[in-house]
Write a protein that binds this DNA or RNA. Sequence first.
DNA 1: GTAGTTCGATTGTCCGGACATACGGATTGA
DNA 2: TCAATCCGTATGTCCGGACAATCGAACTAC
Lengths: 245, 245
Amino acid sequence: MQLDLSVDRGSPVPLYFQLSQQLEAAIERGALTPGTLLGNEIELAGRLGLSRPTVRQAIQSLVDKGLLVRRRGVGTQVVHSQVKRPLELSSLYDDLEAAGQRPGTKVLVNTVVAASAEVAAALGVAEDGEVHRIERLRFTHGEPMAYLCNFLPPGLLDLDTGQLEATGLYRLMRAAGITLHSARQTIGARAATAGEAERLDEQTGAPLLTMQRVTFDDTGRAVEFGTHTYRPSRYSFEFQLLVRP
Amino acid sequence: MQLDLSVDRGSPVPLYFQLSQQLEAAIERGALTPGTLLGNEIELAGRLGLSRPTVRQAIQSLVDKGLLVRRRGVGTQVVHSQVKRPLELSSLYDDLEAAGQRPGTKVLVNTVVAASAEVAAALGVAEDGEVHRIERLRFTHGEPMAYLCNFLPPGLLDLDTGQLEATGLYRLMRAAGITLHSARQTIGARAATAGEAERLDEQTGAPLLTMQRVTFDDTGRAVEFGTHTYRPSRYSFEFQLLVRP
DNA sequence: GTAGTTCGATTGTCCGGACATACGGATTGA
DNA sequence: TCAATCCGTATGTCCGGACAATCGAACTAC
């Protein structure tokens, strides 16, 4: 016997989701070793008392995650992997917290300003219209790691400085009922200006990692525009990409 | 009449794919404007002479691409988008070519060396085992843009210097029957060493954008490990992210 | 007028079956 | 011995139907 899979029809959790979770857990803990054939879908469906479409839906979700590979005429295989998780739209705060670093935030600016041409274009608001501007320093282990400058359209969220120092911006947005959908990002590098150097405890001219981002919700509104600079000695972008089949 | 959708049952192209392509094209050319409801699936299926699962499969693929949003009880909506394409695992060569820049390559090194500890770990081969090493300079408009250093496991591919100068590494790998699956990337920044500065026509200490990548094929083998440095004035990473639902 | 309820609309989940298509190995032929 | 062909197997595509869950708006009651 290889694996004890089972589903609970009484649960409100969808059957395909129960199955995909169990398979993912089995892969994670090594019960399904890389290269293993998963056994054909029909037999698997019969064994679990499910229909083939349901089993396929479960498998497909893991294929999309990069954990499984299907081959017609062969079967479904566990991918030999150092695969962790593909890149998702995440906040620096959540990433740091997940990595066990206790992120700290100092709000430098939290005000309303007139939108510059660049900000207006990014957020899709009128030039010189009102937008929120927040500037933050993010720390780990008491040392500055990044300088974050963000702009938000008006009326979307009330930005409390206390909350901003206690958690991340994305969490506040989700808590306000905004469902994030996608973001457009640009990552680059440049030499630190005198002001940036001072804020980040670097020297003028030192290399900095930069990121610009516009985030959209599921109605297509731009809900955030940010310009961030990171100290490359303390931060780099790390992620996994999947090939789109 | 809003749209003339139709499918060709004689075609070997799957029906759901024909439909999703037509919908995507309609969105792209503006025939389906952002915010439009797509009309319910059952009616749409009836109009096209398809079954609901087939229509759902077509719609789902566009939802996965970020072009559509489904809401239970409401309908399926075209996303208000500046959505281009989500991040894919792509080669610098293809990206530049798609952007209309004629990429040029100069091969500096194309040889076999003993694997260092770092390379051995990344590629999953024995330390001091043989690996291919290639170093390339990539140009656009006659100016150097990036310095690319790559390692490949032995016996995977015969690396012809002429081919390397005529096309990109990923194309050669695909042409050799390797199906790329995923990659693990790290993007950072650092100051240029004297050697790097000279190769890239920058000054020592100038900020450089760096990228490290290990690429895996669908059997889980590491097929490439690369360390790249880019001139930040001429290159930055730009991409779109989708929120994992 | 406002709050709670009902109800229609639409997607989400699931079933059981059918045929097509591609891969890999075994068989067959040169 | 080696190449071409056949065939079993597993996934890919597609169908038609059923019921559940959720959203929004109309309706009702206070």
